[in-house]
Write a protein that binds this DNA or RNA. Structure first.
Lengths: 212, 212
DNA sequence: TGTACATCAGTGAACGCGCGTTCACTGATGTAC
DNA sequence: TGTACATCAGTGAACGCGCGTTCACTGATGTAC
């Protein structure tokens, strides 16, 4: 099946190169030569560079959104209330499991893409992702409110965005940060420990209420 | 003084446009036409686009680094130990005062630039800033350790980076986030309240210790 | 004081380059009769 | 079964465009004698 090969090789190369250098800094020529594919193949299969960027995100986020939905269904099925820590570890395990527990590096590298999507001006991408994944993210956020009964709406709004920032920033710079530390444990256990730390940090921070 | 006018108009336009769209997405033609300046003037005064980017950062960070140093000198002069909350509010007030309390919007917009500097691949900029401001940032971080005696080095390392992420991300997206909230208080008091919330969030998160 | 020269901010037009995209084309495979 | 045609993945070369940078130049100001 020659088509699937070409399409997937383009997506693989684009995902890795975008995460490494950003969207504007990665040319179609670099992508296609990395993927061993003709330059015109990107426009043939995807139509444009913008659509290729969207396709990279969809390929990664689709299984993730499905996995999160399934877990929320399962957790809500028994009618029990979900605590903040329940919700946080549910989200973490949905993210980690969506692409197989072993492919942790790809997940970390995709976090860089998420960070880039926020900071680089990819308006088309933001709109597209909100359209496509807005409902599952709203569903998740709505579960946070009963899990943090002591927080007012404004508290919760800002705290969740602080938490999102801590997660996106630290995971998207994970490679550079990890290299600064002299840590001899295995790569797999190192990143899992960082995620454990991140969850603890977020859990403490999110529960803070501020009188203004 | 025609030169200072031109140089400053270029820096003003570049700072605003870079923060709005990113480095690669902002052309010298856009900058010079916004600044009402000849296209060749950027290369005449700065030598290259890279050097212009560095000059934008230096113009903003130089007073900030000075202000932080001065405050650390003053705080350490009386020999008292600095608590974590002392250190956090010292940093916040150094950042806010460096460019006049009234110019809070420029400070928020510059936070976007800091975020971009991290995520867009501006290797030359990272190296340059580390050279120039590494010592004052090391001085600050070294004061955090005695302020958090219950933390191991690894705890502190990750927690400070989580905190940095929360700050950079939320402030650099401040405009968009603020617009999502229906809040009728004045602009000035709104952003000050967010900074208060951010400090509380960070203060709680940084103190979390994780056994791995 | 006047003249000759040096310095320097700023300019207008052009340079070459790499970019995303387009287009006419090939060749293999599937389908209709 | 054989022939004619349609479909579609993939290709090679070229397109126009916007980019950062360069260069010869102008004109104002300062300096030396």
């Amino acid at each position: 099946m020659a088509q699937k090969d070409t399409v997937d090789r383009i997506l693989d190369a684009a995902e890795a190169l975008f995460a490494e250098r950003g969207f504007a800094e990665t040319s179609l020529r670099t992508i296609t030569s990395t993927a061993n594919v003709n330059l015109a193949a990107v426009n043939y299969h995807f139509g444009s560079k913008k659509s290729l960027i969207q396709a990279v995100f969809v390929r990664f986020l689709e299984p993730l959104a499905d996995s999160l939905s399934d877990r929320l269904d399962a957790a809500q099925a028994d009618g029990q209330e979900l605590s903040l820590d329940d919700l946080l570890s549910l989200l973490a395990s949905a993210i980690l499991s969506a692409h197989g527990e072993d492919d942790v590096n790809r997940t970390a590298s995709f976090m860089r893409l998420l960070g880039l999507a926020y900071t680089q001006s990819q308006g088309h991408l933001r709109d597209y992702l909100r359209d496509r994944y807005g409902s599952v993210s709203t569903r998740y956020v709505d579960l946070l409110r009963p899990a943090c009964p002591q927080l007012e709406d404004t508290d919760l709004f800002w705290n969740t965005h602080f938490a999102l920032g801590a997660a996106v920033f630290s995971l998207s710079n994970y490679g550079a940060l990890d290299a600064m530390l002299k840590d001899d444990s295995g790569q797999e256990s190192r990143i899992m420990n960082v995620i454990k730390r991140l969850l603890a940090f977020i859990s403490a921070g999110v529960q803070v209420s501020v009188k203004v």
